[in-house]
Design a protein around this nucleic acid. Sequence first.
DNA 1: TATATATAATGTCATTTAGCCATTAAATAT
DNA 2: ATATTTAATGGCTAAATGACATTATATATA
Lengths: 246, 246
Amino acid sequence: MLILLIGKLAMNEKEFLKKYDIHDFDVPLCTVDMAIFGIIDNELNVLLVRRDEHPEKDKWALPGGFIDLKEDKNIDATAYRKLQEKTGVRSPYLEQIQTVGSGTRDSRGWSITVLYFALIDVNKVKDNLITERSRWIPVSKARRLGLAFDHQALVALANGRLKAKTTYSALPIELMPKEFTLTELQTVFETILERDLQLKAFRRRLLAADLVEETGNSKIAGKRPAKLYRSTGKDRNTTFSQSLKI
Amino acid sequence: MLILLIGKLAMNEKEFLKKYDIHDFDVPLCTVDMAIFGIIDNELNVLLVRRDEHPEKDKWALPGGFIDLKEDKNIDATAYRKLQEKTGVRSPYLEQIQTVGSGTRDSRGWSITVLYFALIDVNKVKDNLITERSRWIPVSKARRLGLAFDHQALVALANGRLKAKTTYSALPIELMPKEFTLTELQTVFETILERDLQLKAFRRRLLAADLVEETGNSKIAGKRPAKLYRSTGKDRNTTFSQSLKI
DNA sequence: TATATATAATGTCATTTAGCCATTAAATAT
DNA sequence: ATATTTAATGGCTAAATGACATTATATATA
């Protein structure tokens, strides 16, 4: 009897799925967009592309696109694929930020986009991928370009998240080349936070948490040579108990 | 000439949109799910519903559903609507957590869900909405029910976010009735954090940040009457510079 | 060669906030 | 009255950041 019942339920579900067609319902358009950040000349840049197609053709936009239902196992895979296509970078720092959806943000109809942000060392990006239609643009200048859709707001969202995380983590290390001086790293932090930091407090914080270590090399930029450091790889997980003031 | 060009572009876009049909592409199924939390008998509960329909019929699940493309202006509106349907609560604390998507989480095909969490005072929920098929269930027991889809993981995600936020904010105040004692509030914090807190440190933190204020009333629970407090309404925005240990 | 200068790095104390534990306060029960 | 129990405060310690002075190491130049 119990088995019969289970059998009946299973059959019902089978029949249900047989008849089920996603196209019977109105569904929103669904995309993944990437805010890929990198540091160029002590400035925070975001990778933008000029749209090849309608709508919003020829406007600058965040790289992104549709989920490939055959290729992408999950939604993170879509983001990794997009990032790979645009930068060639293997293992970037990637994090989902937020999903934005409304009936008005895309002229094609009700649409949602899952926004990710990525932090990469710009030197790792394959040169041939940076073209007239795919460029690093300073975040401060991006708003003047009149980005496609609501991508202006998406850049602001991603930038806000990066800024917030920078007050309680060492995530910006992901933006650095293999070897860097602590002065360079501090400058990157200051760029993101849009304020100056105390030199001593900054170093103490990073070193106490064992987030960076000396490479033994040094770099002559100014007068006295600066020690070069590398990441210990802990920066993706470490959160400080005390956050920096805003 | 320039005007002609613009005219041409505009026409192209118009034509493009005319031909555009979302159903020409394979799109994922898209839902919104809600993890609605409340405190009952000093325990963290989540509102679950028994599924009326296939797939996963009769299994317990998070309340949720499809975006109503005609009614919902944006995706937050979908979440508010779902919450209103299930609880009748007007202005809950609501926050988007994460979007989960994969080809395997739903038997109907590739699907994504935008997960929200809400914090409400259980007393505000209309009694008639709590039925045999829509019940408060302790988070600790939810995992034993074998929830539908990946809702087990979604509850864990939401619970994790709540726990994390409780270390650096006063968000759990949103779970309290209008008037409450600080001992009661501390118990709620301890429930969420799954550890005891220092009485003095807890009060100092909340009072110094001006998050609660005396109502002038008191409540006789044990021996000495306890002062009753109310929220000052700052708890949604305040983040402490120093987070509690985990 | 000595000295000025600029950048790098460290020393030290003040401030803030959480952790901890003892003590006091205010009610009820006996 | 006194014991008991829960509520609330006092006061010290510990940990981490903020602020600023001081020292270190290179180059440039008289």
